[in-house]
Design a protein around this nucleic acid. Structure first.
Length: 284
DNA sequence: AAGAACCCCAACCGCTGAGAG
DNA sequence: CCTCTCAGCGGTTGGGGTTCT
């Protein structure tokens, strides 16, 4: 077989390959073949199963959709919590993160990060990988998820994760020791929801002296009915301290009032209440 | 009611590393 | 070593559905 005939063959094969959404028939062919012969050797599988797809495409379809243990539906607060925690450890190692979420695929986790987490960062006008945003996640978002999860169900790792200090910003040294106490505080609030109101002395989330926040005897209330915080700077303290470096000009951010980010997906996903968002936003 | 804008996610693409020959 | 194939990973895209105006 000379080279030109080889090229001709491979070209015509390429032309025959299907792309785009999988049909029911293709799915059942793939399922049947894997049932009989197992996973792996995807290129051979594609050929022998009579699928006009690349091995790659077959593998992806199987792993992300057809495999029996693939979990479908929204991510639970527990799963979201785990993603945030593991991403803070490992970054965009989606596959590695997925290994710790049974039934969830790396693709799904990646999509979650892009569509939910990065969206929040965009709304706050910070980089999703910035220290500031990661601190918002740790000091604000994760405790919120913990509340949803119900503190009685938390694992030792989750508790430990929450208790960890946020990342230090080596340039501005914005985070201080008092962050630890805020974690404990939020954790306790989530855990001991029978208390309707807390007094703290002092409540300075990151010990950030640039925040112009009251230094002591701050109080805030926790609504036992809505399981939400109310009033004063409870929420915006955490988030805005972390975000200080990400908001170059507070005046510019007044434009946020004209944006619709409060009313859109930010709240839709049930992460933070409208009140929390308003406080977070209005502080700038 | 209709078009625009936005969101989500399945699927694709390019790259890398491992292993076989 | 070198080349080739394959599996796997992370980034990106496109289309369908939904919401907004």
């Amino acid at each position: 077989m000379n080279m030109s005939s080889l090229r001709k063959t491979s070209t015509s094969e390429a032309e025959q390959l299907r792309r785009g959404p999988w049909t029911l028939e293709e799915d059942s062919l793939l399922i049947r073949y894997v049932d009989r012969h197992g996973e792996g050797r995807w290129n051979l599988l594609a050929k022998h199963a009579g699928l006009r797809r690349t091995g790659k495409s077959c593998r992806l379809r199987w792993l992300n959709y057809l495999k029996p243990d693939v979990k479908r539906g929204n991510l639970t607060p527990q799963e979201q919590f785990l993603i945030l925690e593991l991403h803070s450890k490992w970054g965009n190692r989606w596959s590695k993160i997925a290994q710790h979420l049974p039934g969830r695929t790396d693709n799904e986790i990646k999509n979650y990060w892009r569509t939910r987490v990065q969206k929040q960062a965009r709304h706050l006008r910070v980089d999703a990988n910035s220290v500031a945003f990661r601190n918002v996640i740790r000091c604000y978002w994760m405790p919120s998820l913990l509340q949803k999860m119900g503190a009685q169900n938390e694992t030792p790792q989750q508790r430990q994760a929450l208790m960890r200090r946020p990342e230090q910003n080596s340039d501005s040294e914005q985070c201080g020791n008092s962050c630890v106490s805020s974690f404990e505080l939020m954790y306790n609030i989530a855990k001991e929801s029978e208390f309707a109101e807390y007094q703290t002395t002092p409540f300075s989330v990151f010990g950030n002296n640039d925040c112009n926040m009251p230094a002591s005897n701050d109080c805030y209330s926790y609504d036992i009915n809505t399981t939400r915080f109310h009033d004063v700077e409870t929420f915006n303290l955490a988030a805005t301290s972390a975000l200080t470096e990400g908001f170059p000009n507070p005046v510019d951010d007044c434009h946020l009032a004209d944006n619709d980010w409060v009313s859109d997906g930010f709240a839709d996903h049930g992460l933070w209440s409208m009140g929390e968002l308003w406080e977070l936003r209005s502080f700038h």
